[in-house]
Design a binder for these strands. Sequence first.
RNA 1: GCCCCUGUAGCUCAGUGGAUAGAGCGAUGGCCUCCGGAGCCAUUAGCGAGGGUUCGAUUCCUUCCAGGGGCACCA
Length: 557
Amino acid sequence: MHYNPVGQLEENLIAALEKARREMLQERGQEEIDLPPVEVEVPREKSHGDYASNLAMVMAGRLGENPRRLAEYLAESLDFELLEKVEVAGPGFINLTLNNNWLAEALDKILEAGQDYGRTNQGRGQKVQLEFVSTNPTGPLHVGHSRGAVVGDVVASIMERAGYEVYREYYINDAGNQIDLLGESTYLRYQELFGREITLSKNSYRGDYIIDIARELKQEHGSKLLEKPEEEAFIIAREFALEQMLELIRQDLKKFGITFDNWFSERELHENNKIQEVSAELKEKGYVYEKEGALWFKSTAFGDDKDRVVIKSDGSPTYLAADIAYHQNKMERGFQHLINVWGADHHGYIERMKAVMEALGYERDNLEIIIVQIVTLLREGKKVPMSKRSGEFVTMREVLEEVGRDAARYFYSMRSTDSHFDFDLELAKKQSTENPVYYIQYAHARIMSIKDNAGKLSEEIEKGDASLLKTEEEIELLKLLARYPEELKVAAERRACHLVAAYAHELAGAFHVFYNKCRVITEDRELSLARLKLVEAARIVLRNVLEVIGVSAPEQM
RNA sequence: GCCCCUGUAGCUCAGUGGAUAGAGCGAUGGCCUCCGGAGCCAUUAGCGAGGGUUCGAUUCCUUCCAGGGGCACCA
């Protein structure tokens, strides 16, 4: 079920304004004049009403007339059922104050919709593939990955509720050089466990987790690998390490509450000859050429800075080559839209991948990239240095264990992906008001406590009469609850998880204010029922919005 | 040198063309005979700098300045 009271109300209001404008132009014989669509906005200043329109000011320039006079005229002829007051103000704003007759129905519908409240059909079932995390399985997920992981997961959830059919996918780079290095590192550490002298190469992975894997390898195979030919032993070590790493990554993500619909193996592309096929296809189209022994993709033809190598002069494919095949595969699977979540260090790849889409015969906008800016970990106010190769990094798991899943997910969601993020461990660990997630969860726990207190009365919540809700705090809370589907819709359009996090915080705030001002359970049975109904709606929306972010809604704290 | 992100209150951040720029934390002062004080209320202070577009710019364009991240036949 889809119910979006505020969205509907705004649509109706815009339609009414458009009608007034159209009639005015007709009367003046100017209906052929081309004008931008009517817009309304919620003014910052409460005294400016519930909505304001710049309609007259936008028209004034075009018609060469005084905006205030146009506004007066439009205000007079506006016909809208919920209109309580209309005023012309400032340079020509039309300020609209509405009555609250729509709120009672909204409250009923929220209770009716329950956990489905917030769902809209904005996406119209569009099939979207969202690829995120996709880190190389050569080491555990570190703190930098966890931001992209949470953002990807939350954006997916938001879009699902806005009516998109979202498919979460993890691309496993299980082919190529870095996996060989993982295997080599593991094999060396394995040998070391038997007292052999080893020398790690410059590119070896040096983290302790490699030693852990080597120990498990020893557990599994004993000393048998030492007797096998080196090449054979190496492959066994490599495959073992790969499986271990993937399992580790899967477990880490699961602890974060993140699961994927599909784990896509790069190897399959190689094994099914997809890279050769797509290279040949692009060559046929003239988008690939040979130079200096290598095969180049002509990405400059689509706006990239320079052309890119797809097959190196030693005959091996680059990462890009596999990516071309992968994205072709995505589109062939019937997705209408692709979203990739990348770290800021990959921004330089956007243009070439857009070029790939075009070369493959798709629209460049079929592929959308969300760039998530860098995370810096702060411990005692100082940057924690991180480098995967040196093995010096803080893992996603450590952060999770330190601050908890709810706090971690909320923190990663609450900030715009465009902004760098300083993750202060000390701050995140504080279980105090400094941590917004506790503030929100507390509101939910408080509601549960009120319901307990209501006893038998809560069985009759449905009978509550919303027209008894008259105080400013009650109305503000109710309006905010009614706004939820529209908030989700906007967040989905903008792929902006921080808007949802901010809404959750705002809602909790509105509830706390209401709670302090309006006692719910009193001798006035009718008023108690009405307020209980409002509280129940707040509970539903709080739980729903926390679910989107992946944060628990505790009954007690 | 080129490309991307950021610069807003003491601190961390919202605010993608509107009227008097908002939250949280911090600081200061208040609020429980009453449903959870992990709460509420009040006070505090700010758009990096200069041009431009616009009736109107924190927002769009541009030039600087500052911080971060990229510019491989690596992944």
